[in-house]
Simulated scan of single mutants.
Amino acid sequence: MHHTTQLPDHRSAAVRTGAATAAPPPARSGKRRRPTSTQWAAWAFLAPVTLYLALFYAYPLYRNLDLSLRDYTVRSFVQGDAPFTGLANYRKILDDPTFAPALLHTVVFTAVCLLFQYAVGLALAVFFHQNFRLSATLRALFLVPWLLPLIVSASTWSWMLNSDSGVVNALLSALGFDPVNWLTSPSWSLTSVTVANIWIGVPFNLVVLYSGLQSIPASLYEAAALDGANAWQRFWRITFPLLRPVSAITLLLGLVYTLKVFDIIWIMTKGGPADSSTTFATWSYQLGFGNLLPAFGPGAAVGNLLVVAALVFGLVYVRAQRKQALS
């Protein structure tokens, strides 16, 4: 009697395996997946920030844009029936004889303030980075101008630069020089407000740049010193390149702040005399609120030019940072 050994059917097993593999996935349920508790928590934390940005940033920007595109008067501002004029307000400020001087003053004021605030702040940051005795105390004293309210700082500078009773002219007279009309002379008014703003902005640059210096490893300076590098070479080859990211954000924040400086100029000179210290910030306020018949539309148009300028420089910074991250 012959016994037949039955071998396993590998082909049928493969077929069965293939059939199992090719089996269609289970049909998706028509119900959407409900948010998890983590997602609800994320939305809960995001909601206050979103509400704050919408109320205090997005809506004011929208209202300012609407003001610049309509012919608003005091009556229409209250009743809300101002006619739409398109870009007429922008053409009006471009044709205004104040536009060119205000643009020049804004560029000069911003550029000079940024240059000196950054240079002096960087020099002080490197100086205090030596961690000598009383370094922390002196660094804290340098923060006083930044901590004072702007109205106090501007009033103090107005008193110091007063033509008759200011301490600056008193010092010049003691040294044998003629007094200078710092705030009432068209030749000196812009210089005066620029110096005051530089004094106020230096502490901010000092704090940010000093924190950037703290992140540079000391071993790099030790290795450079062993290689024979002097103090200037260590600064130029190590400190300055490694501070570029911190320097970029410092200059950007300083630019945005300086473009919109109003308090200091208005308290010290009110943009005068003869518009010699008028910038876009003071001109926008003067158009909208400084006259008996306010020009809300042109004033908002000037303000929007400042917003666009700050936005352009912000986008340039973001683009530069993205290129640096990819390289």
Rank of each mutant, 00 (worst) to 15 (best):
H2N: 12
V15F: 08
G18H: 06
A20S: 12
S29E: 14
R32F: 04
R33S: 04
R34I: 05
P35F: 01
S37T: 10
T38F: 13
W40L: 14
W43V: 06
A44L: 15
L51D: 05
L55A: 15
A58P: 12
P60L: 11
P60I: 09
R63M: 10
S68T: 03
T73S: 15
R75K: 01
V78I: 13
D81S: 14
A82S: 05
L87Q: 10
A88N: 11
Y90R: 07
L94Q: 03
D95S: 12
D95F: 01
P97K: 04
F99Y: 09
F99P: 09
A100H: 05
A100G: 07
A100K: 11
P101S: 10
H105F: 05
A111T: 14
L114A: 06
Q117E: 13
L122D: 06
V126F: 01
F128H: 01
F128T: 01
H129R: 02
L134A: 12
A136I: 00
L143K: 04
P145R: 02
W146P: 02
L148H: 02
I151Q: 13
I151F: 13
S153K: 02
W157F: 11
S158N: 08
S158E: 04
W159Q: 10
L161Q: 04
G166W: 08
G166F: 05
N169A: 07
A170V: 00
L171H: 02
A174S: 12
L175A: 15
D178E: 15
P186C: 07
N197P: 02
I198V: 14
W199L: 04
W199C: 03
V202M: 10
P203S: 05
F204L: 13
L206N: 03
L209R: 06
S211L: 12
G212Y: 12
L213V: 00
S215L: 08
S215R: 14
S219G: 01
A229L: 06
A229W: 00
A231G: 05
W232A: 13
Q233F: 02
W236A: 06
R237N: 06
T239D: 02
P245A: 12
L251E: 04
L251I: 14
L252V: 06
V256C: 10
V256T: 09
T258S: 15
I265T: 08
K270H: 07
G272M: 09
S277Y: 03
T279M: 11
A281C: 12
A281H: 14
A281E: 13
W283G: 07
W283N: 07
L287E: 12
L293I: 10
L293G: 01
A300K: 01
G303M: 03
A309I: 14
V312D: 03
V312T: 11
F313Q: 10
Y317N: 08
V318T: 06
R319C: 00
R319F: 10
Q321F: 01
Q321T: 07
R322F: 01
R322P: 00
Q324S: 15
L326H: 11
S327A: 15
